[in-house]
């Protein structure tokens, strides 16, 4: 469904992404793991076109973008078929929880208001925050904000959802609930593909069809959770797993 070829980005001579080739099939769940500063977040942002890479190709369902030349029309078209969940939640601070979910639907996708309200109500009930629908982000806890963030992404009914370390800004006791919610989303999804950047190895193991290991802006290895997490062949991956005390 999405195919990335030769993607590179550098900031003042420092290579953040180095010739990345990567693809996700329809409905597939892929986790990206690796040490901090590996370029995982940058890569995810490139897929959502929040960053403009220096070179490379992104092919989204036949819509091809050749970097660094981008047309705003193409960018918007791809963004409207994807959604992203941010590490710092990034809820719109001037909108209520409810408006956060409907904003993209009404303004960007031109869905009529009643339908958008219906979608938002259903999602808020599903994540258990219907009572908080009129609260502003400032009045919500981190865990609640992230659940709204996930709802905002789901509301758009995207073909691809990107999760950027969705739990790493949360207090430890809230991580479990949020991961459960994402697992639930993964289990009940119809056709959506998911890319998850995460430091939670057990979660990655449980939820993913495929795991990608990134280091220094490049993909070092990829395979099933069994291959990468249980029997890693690459010594770098073995070291990394040891350092995060997995197994």
């Amino acid at each position: 469904m999405i195919e990335v070829r030769n993607l590179s980005q550098s900031i003042s001579k420092h290579k953040i992404l180095d010739n990345i080739d990567f693809s996700v099939a329809k409905g597939e769940v892929v986790s990206i793991i690796g040490p901090s500063g590996a370029g995982k977040t940058t890569f995810l942002r490139c897929i959502n076109l929040l960053n403009t890479p220096d070179q490379g190709v992104i092919d989204f369902n036949g819509k091809v973008i050749n970097f660094p030349r981008v047309k705003m029309k193409d960018v918007l078209e791809i963004r409207r078929k994807t959604a992203m969940v941010f590490q710092q939640y990034a809820l719109f601070r001037n909108k209520t929880a409810f408006q956060n979910i409907t904003e993209g639907l009404v303004v960007a996708r031109k869905i009529d208001k009643e339908r958008a309200n219906e979608i938002a109500e259903n999602l808020l009930k599903k994540v258990g925050l219907y009572e908080k629908r009129n609260a502003y982000p400032a009045e919500l806890s981190g865990g609640q904000q992230q659940r709204i963030g996930i709802s905002r992404a789901l509301a758009l009914d995207p073909e691809l959802i990107l999760f950027d370390e969705p739990t790493s800004a949360l207090d430890p006791e809230l991580v479990g609930d949020t991961l459960e919610l994402i697992k639930n989303v993964a289990a009940t999804r119809v056709k959506q593909a998911m890319i998850v950047v995460t430091h939670e190895m057990q979660f990655a193991h449980d939820v993913s069809d495929r795991i990608v290991f990134m280091e220094n802006g490049a993909i070092l290895d990829e395979g099933t959770p069994r291959q990468i997490l249980e029997n890693p062949q690459n010594p770098r991956i073995q070291n990394f797993l040891k350092s995060v005390r997995y197994n």
Binding site: I16, T41, R45, L50, N51
Partner: peptide, 12 residues
């Protein structure tokens, strides 16, 4: 951030 801070101005 870790990322290109001007990105939103470039994609316009």
């Amino acid at each position: 951030a870790e990322t290109n801070e001007l990105s939103f101005k470039k994609v316009k």
